[in-house]
Write a protein that binds this DNA or RNA. Sequence first.
DNA 1: TTCACATTTTGCACGCTGTACTGTGTTGTT
DNA 2: AACAACACAGTACAGCGTGCAAAATGTGAA
Lengths: 201, 201
Amino acid sequence: MGARGPQPSLTVERIVAAAMAVLDSGEAVSVRAVAARLDVQPNTIYTYLPDRAALHTAVADRLLALAGPELLTGRRAGRRRIKDYAVALRTVLLERRGAITLFHSAPLSGPYARTISELLLGTFTRAGLSDQDAVRAAQSVIAYVLGAIALSTVNTCADARPGAPLAAVPEPTPIAAQFHATWDSEEQFCWGLDRLLDGLV
Amino acid sequence: MGARGPQPSLTVERIVAAAMAVLDSGEAVSVRAVAARLDVQPNTIYTYLPDRAALHTAVADRLLALAGPELLTGRRAGRRRIKDYAVALRTVLLERRGAITLFHSAPLSGPYARTISELLLGTFTRAGLSDQDAVRAAQSVIAYVLGAIALSTVNTCADARPGAPLAAVPEPTPIAAQFHATWDSEEQFCWGLDRLLDGLV
DNA sequence: TTCACATTTTGCACGCTGTACTGTGTTGTT
DNA sequence: AACAACACAGTACAGCGTGCAAAATGTGAA
């Protein structure tokens, strides 16, 4: 039965690994860049993955795994577990330029994404929330975490630009200056996450 | 002094308006699409804006304005104002495919972004928060709102794809099915925002 | 052993993107 | 009238995702 034709030279696994290498090297995760790293024509990728979005989904899933889903298990308090994983994910994503954008061009449908959803849901139901509220809580946490990371990268990448601000901007209030200076602080990230969790559990 | 050379045929204002028209028509906001709508060569845009990121920043700022910053003022409770504006922004961004992505490729440095920052900060300080906590609270709210909208669009756009899931996925728990079905619900959005605000004020 | 066929991989191509460079024409200032 | 500043077009390049046809390659059946 089955496998006629030349032996496949790649696997999805190897493609994702190459994509991770591309990401680590600072380049964008394009189909062509990944193919080049595998010494293969770009089209070959399409034998294993339907399109670029699938590639992005797979890499995003790998990043979720890299952050260490095991942090979401164990005997510590559920709240502590969530914070640990969120901080680890933040680190993983901020260390790689362009990593967070993968989450915007591809759905969270990979196996690790599902695992993490389940773990989050379990944590919240064990904390006493109803099924529906657990769903809402988990989605809220994910929204906050990914949103915060996205804003942090967007605003820190941009401050390198000296550019003219398009329109005359009035004096930034002292408090507003502080506002724009602290986007990428881990402490800020944790503070907001703690306040959200205050409302959840 | 000043304006030598031929009279400019465009303004940043007209460019942003054209970009909004492009966005409303469902196309992506590319330099070329905007230029085409203005019956102008793509390069002409660069006379008025330094690069694509600046265009995106300007359009993102316009979207923030379209949501109605006046919702953030007035005599109603601060919490209510925040919720009203967040819901309006959500609607504005979800109505336009690709709108949220503008916030990921461009910094929030436009005048309306600053205005909204100030209004948020004012709301939180008036609620009794210290300057530092107001900064943190405002950033947290922005992170949640933009993150939730991003996840909502990513996951609803993707469900249209029938595609193979890359790897054998086990039975989705009933609760997990619910999880993936409610990404784009306004009620879910408000619930999470309420919980966050519970922790903030 | 030979043939047919399924399957991978390639080569080529198309249309799209952002944007750098060069030249041309218009304008206000000297 | 000459000049300098400026807007704009034309051309071009390198990159992107990906569709399609042909070639290479291996296995199962005859």
